[in-house]
Design a protein around this nucleic acid. Structure first.
Lengths: 257, 257
DNA sequence: ATGTCTTTGTGAACGCGTGCACAAAGATGG
DNA sequence: CCATCTTTGTGCACGCGTTCACAAAGACAT
C-alpha cells in the first residue's frame, strides 16, 4: 500500500465506510479477471482469497452495496462487476490531466490500467518548453500556460501532480482554480486545498521507510532471540500461504516486456 | 496516499502502533525542512500543521518514542530528526534492487528521495535482454538471470517490483528465495509470500478509482441539494486552510525541471 | 524564590473497522 | 414436498486509532 488519505475528517459517504471504498477496486480487479475467464459465479471465500482479504470482511463490504449474492451459490460475477463499477463511478468518463511529464509522469501516461477503468488522459502538461509538443504515450505534451484552458475545455475534474515538490503547490492552486476537485499527488509535499477538494497522496519514499522500519525490527529480533537466519535460505515458515491467486488480467504498469 | 498494507495481522512492533510508524516519515520530512532552515525548536502545533496532522496525534505519536520534548518550549529539531531516523532504521544503509526498468522503474531509479534517506539502489534488473547494459540513473541495467547473485552479493533485503502484473509473482518468489524480506510492489497483483516477508503495495489505478468515487458523490450532491457550482469559480468555502506549510526541502520525484 | 505562562505528555471516552459465529435463505437431491 | 447442505448476510464483541481535555513540567520574568 501507499500512503495517502488526506480526506475530509471521516465523512463516510452515503453510508459506505471509507475502508470499504478503498477495497472495492481490489474486488473489481479480481472480478474482472474472473470475468475474462468466463467464470459465472464466485463464492465470498474464493473471491476473498483472490483479492487478499478476509471473506467475512468482503461479505460485509458487499452488504453495504446491497444484497447482490445468492445464498448457497455465491455472487454473479458480471452483475457484481457492473454494480461495483457503477458504485465507484467508473461507468462514466473521467477526463484526467497529468502535470509534470518526467519519468513518473510518462509512466502514468503509459499506464494501461487507466483507460480500462473509465479514465481518459485528456492532456499531458509540463513546464519545460523543451518538452512541449513531444509525443508521450501518443499524446503531445502541452505547456503549463495552457493549463486553465485545457481543464476548462475538457471539463477535467481529476488532476494528477507528478512535478517536483517545489512546483506542486502552485500547480495544485491553478488546477483547483480552474475547476479540478480531486487531486492525486505524487510530489513529496503536503498540499493545502480549499474545502471540498479531495487530495490523495502517493509517496514512494515513505513506503520504503515503513519497510525499513519493519526490516530493522526483524533484524533486531533475529539477533536477540535466535540465530540470524542464514541468508540464501527461505526465511522462517516458508510453508503456508502456498495458494496462488490466479494471474491478473490487468494491463501492467510499464516496462518493455 | 497510496494503498498498501499487507502486513502481518497487527503485530504492533515493539509497542509502536502501525499507524504511528506510517506517520513518522511525514514528520521526518517536515523536520528535515525545518532543519535546513536552521530552525532550532518547533512546537507540536507548528510541526503538526506542517505535516498535515492533528497536534494531539503528533504528541501521542512522539510519546511512543519517548519523551523528547521540553514543556513550554517544544521539540529540538535536530534531536528529533535523529531519533526518528534511528527509529525508522534510516541511520543504516539499505541496499535496494529495482526489478522492471520501464518508465516507472526508471522514475524510481532517478528518485532523489531514496539516497537522502539511507536507501541505496544496489542494482537495476530487467528481463529484456535489449535493456541489459543500458545506463539508467547512472547504473547499468542487469539481466534477470543475475538476480539471485546480485541480491546475495549486495546483502539486499528490500526489493522493489515494477514489472508487469504477469511477471510480478515469479520475480517476487525469486527475490524472497534469494533472501529479500521486504517488498514494495507496484504491479497490480496480490502477491503471496511466506510468513515473515513484508509486502507493501502501491496501486496507481486504485487511487484514481477512490477519487472517482468521491468525485461522483460530490457531483450527485451538487445536483441534488444546491446549484451545481459554476465551473471556473473556487468551490465551496475557498477560505480557511490558507496557511501554507513551508516548501519541502526534499528532492522531487522526477521530471526535467 | 515565586508566580505566570506556555507547551508537553497522557488518561479517558468515543468511534470505526475487523473478525467470529450463527441464523436465515436458498439450492439441490431424493 | 421434505431434508440436507452450502453460502450469504449480520449481530455482537473486541481492539486499534483518534480526539478531547487537563494536569504536570518546565521556561521565563520579576
Amino acid at each position: 500500500m501507499a500512503t495517502g488519505r488526506t480526506h475530509r475528517p471521516a465523512t463516510r459517504s452515503r453510508g459506505i465506510p471509507e475502508a470499504t471504498v478503498a477495497r472495492l477496486p481490489l474486488y473489481l480487479r479480481a472480478l474482472t479477471a474472473l470475468s475474462e475467464r468466463s467464470v459465472p459465479t464466485v463464492s465470498s471465500e474464493e473471491l476473498a482469497t483472490a483479492a487478499g482479504v478476509n471473506s467475512a470482511k468482503l461479505r460485509k463490504d458487499f452488504s453495504y452495496l446491497g444484497s447482490y449474492g445468492t445464498r448457497g451459490v455465491g455472487y454473479d460475477v458480471e452483475y457484481l462487476v457492473y454494480q461495483i463499477s457503477r458504485e465507484l463511478g467508473l461507468t462514466q468518463d473521467w477526463p484526467v490531466v497529468i502535470v509534470g511529464i518526467g519519468n513518473l509522469g510518462a509512466a502514468l501516461a503509459n499506464y494501461g490500467g487507466f483507460a480500462s477503468r473509465g479514465f481518459r488522459v485528456a492532456a499531458l502538461i509540463d513546464a519545460d518548453p523543451a518538452q512541449t509538443g513531444k509525443l508521450v504515450a501518443g499524446l503531445p505534451v502541452r505547456h503549463t500556460d495552457e493549463l486553465e484552458e485545457i481543464v476548462d475545455h475538457n471539463q477535467v475534474s481529476i488532476g494528477v501532480i507528478a512535478t517536483p515538490a517545489g512546483a506542486a503547490q502552485e500547480v495544485c492552486d491553478r488546477l483547483v482554480a480552474a475547476g479540478v476537485t480531486s487531486i492525486l499527488n505524487f510530489a513529496p509535499t503536503v498540499l493545502s486545498v480549499p474545502d471540498g477538494v479531495d487530495v490523495r497522496k502517493v509517496d514512494l519514499s515513505i513506503e520504503l521507510q515503513i519497510l525499513a522500519f519493519h526490516e530493522q525490527r526483524k533484524a533486531g529480533e533475529d539477533l536477540g532471540e535466535a540465530v540470524a537466519a542464514a541468508r540464501g535460505a527461505l526465511p522462517k515458515t516458508a510453508a503456508e500461504a502456498v495458494d496462488r491467486p490466479g494471474p491478473d488480467g490487468d494491463v501492467p504498469a510499464v516496462m518493455p516486456a
